[in-house]
């Protein structure tokens, strides 16, 4: 009788988890055409990115310091979702979310989310972060080509993401192969 209630074996769970996460990157993630639903999903993606990227230990002032997600531009996320993330941890690091202005120094942030805006703002932020261990996430066409690490794209109401692997190699961030597997890899032709 109880067998049917606790039937999931370890292998089942393993397979199930792969499928669920695959669904985050690929066509299953479809959202309604409204900003609220779109940004709820984008916040979930930011949380997943933070889980499957590893920062070098010196990217934090100490082992229990918060992992700070900084939003450049107006905050699009609902406060309920943000409050939920603040109650969670990535490893030993509690999550903090705040907004910063484009002229503020973003180097104290572990993850910077650049709102859809003119590429000039993205360029400024990416320039300020050169050589740092900050994960940059954008939502503007061409953000990855500009040197951003991850760019969220919306294709037919489906949320996907692209990763600039060359830019990632220049940081000391480690990205899980499982995350890479779901991304579209962006290559940038370098001028000699």
């Amino acid at each position: 009788m109880a067998g049917s209630l606790y039937s999931s074996t370890r292998t089942f769970c393993y397979l199930a988890s792969c499928c669920l996460i695959l669904s985050l990157g690929t066509p299953f993630v479809v959202f309604a055409q409204d900003d609220n639903a779109e940004y709820q999903l984008k916040l979930a993606f930011l949380y997943n990115f933070a889980q499957f990227v590893q920062w070098p230990s010196d990217a934090f002032p100490d082992a229990g310091a918060p992992l700070t997600i900084c939003i450049v531009g107006p905050d699009p996320f609902n406060s309920e979702g943000e409050q939920d993330l603040r109650s969670r941890k990535i490893g030993n690091h509690p999550i903090d979310i705040k907004t910063i202005k484009s002229d503020q120094d973003p180097r104290a942030c572990q993850l910077v989310f650049v709102r859809a805006s003119k590429t000039r703002v993205a360029d400024e932020v990416l320039h300020a972060l050169k050589g740092s261990s900050t994960l940059t996430v954008g939502e503007t066409k061409g953000f990855a080509e500009l040197g951003g690490l991850i760019n969220l794209t919306v294709d037919n109401s489906k949320l996907r993401f692209e990763i600039n692997l060359d830019a990632a190699m220049q940081t000391r961030l480690k990205i899980s192969a499982k995350l890479l597997a779901l991304a579209k890899i962006v290559k940038v032709e370098r001028t000699p």
Binding site: M1, L5, S8, C13, A16, S17, L20, I21, S23, L24, L43, A44, Y47, N48, Q51, G81, D84, L85, R88
Partner: peptide
């Protein structure tokens, strides 16, 4: 408080929770 597999809305991951009340 049956321990059951749920989906975390924050990121789509599986998580075990004391969710269901079941009568047999």
């Amino acid at each position: 408080n049956l321990i059951s597999q749920e989906t975390d809305p924050a990121n789509g991951s599986i998580v075990y929770m004391n969710r269901e009340q079941v009568q047999m």
